[in-house]
């Protein structure tokens, strides 16, 4: 691993992103627009939005970053640039961290739109510190990048790559506590829920919405998200083959 190569990779990915204004617009606008829709879906019952709204800070960045990363990596593979890079001194972790850093920048921008709009225009109320919300949201976005990289390290075709979304992300959304409280789940689902990193983001965001500080519980949740993201990057780097058949 070499920080120079990692940062060069980050810069290159951001340059590519800059050439694609429509993707930037979608990344910035989509989560906010969907959160706004959610707000008006529960127009009659503001309490539901107060309960569910903060969780969107975790779910939307995870989903968008996962999809963008999967496709970007797939393009790198089918375009032959991945093979070219594999003949250079670039370490696989340089590539993966390069992606993680670049899309973290995108995630910060995404949250910089989502958070103010939610708080000021959609009437979202949170008691906890803003920096903690941003931290959790960015870490979840990095988790999305890491899982996207891991998923596409396994996928060999476009069809497999797109199905990584329902395979890796939807179960997390179902079991994270958005639809039913986690402690009401049976032992099997409860265990699965405990194994899914998004559950910890939802726990942290839910607590930050109602408690004024950043407690040890949220610190643990945050550490779990960061740990899983890092582990996914390392496993992704290990599973990405330098040689193919």
């Amino acid at each position: 691993m070499n920080p120079r190569v990692t940062l060069a990779t980050t810069r290159r990915i951001l340059q590519q992103l800059r050439r694609d204004p429509r993707t930037i617009a979608l990344l910035l606008v989509l989560p906010t627009a969907l959160t706004a829709v959610l707000r008006y879906v529960f127009d009659d019952d503001q309490a539901v939005f107060t309960r569910v709204g903060p969780l969107m800070l975790g779910i939307f960045p995870l989903a968008t970053m996962f999809v963008v990363t999967s496709v970007a990596t797939l393009r790198e593979r089918t375009g032959g640039t991945l093979e070219r890079l594999m003949t250079t001194p670039l370490a696989k972790l340089d590539l993966l961290l390069g992606y993680a850093l670049a899309f973290s920048v995108a995630a910060v921008a995404q949250i910089a739109v989502l958070l103010p709009v939610s708080l000021l225009l959609l009437g979202l109320e949170v008691e906890g510190p803003l920096w903690a919300l941003v931290l959790v949201a960015v870490l979840v976005a990095v988790l999305g990048v890491a899982l996207g990289l891991l998923g596409s390290a396994f996928a060999r075709t476009e069809f497999q790559a797109v199905q990584m979304f329902p395979a890796l992300i939807l179960p997390q959304v179902l079991l994270c506590g958005l639809f039913a409280p986690r402690d009401s789940m049976g032992p099997v689902l409860g265990l699965l829920s405990d194994l899914m990193p998004l559950s910890y983001a939802v726990d942290a965001l839910r607590a930050l919405a109602v408690e004024p500080g950043f407690g040890s519980g949220q610190a643990v949740d945050t550490a779990v998200i960061a740990g899983v993201a890092l582990a996914a990057l390392l496993v992704g780097a290990a599973t990405l083959p330098r040689r193919t058949g």
């Binding site: 070499n2 120079r4 190569v5 060069a8 990779t9 810069r11 290159r12 340059q15 590519q16 050439r19 694609d20 375009g79 032959g80 640039t81 093979e83 070219r84 890079l85 250079t88 001194p89 670039l90």
Partner: peptide
């Protein structure tokens, strides 16, 4: 095997950075 959305110079600058 180059990036279609980058300029000639940007492409080569990236690969040059990778090679140090």
């Amino acid at each position: 095997a180059v990036y279609g959305d980058l300029s000639v110079r940007e492409n080569l600058a990236y690969f040059a950075d990778v090679l140090g």
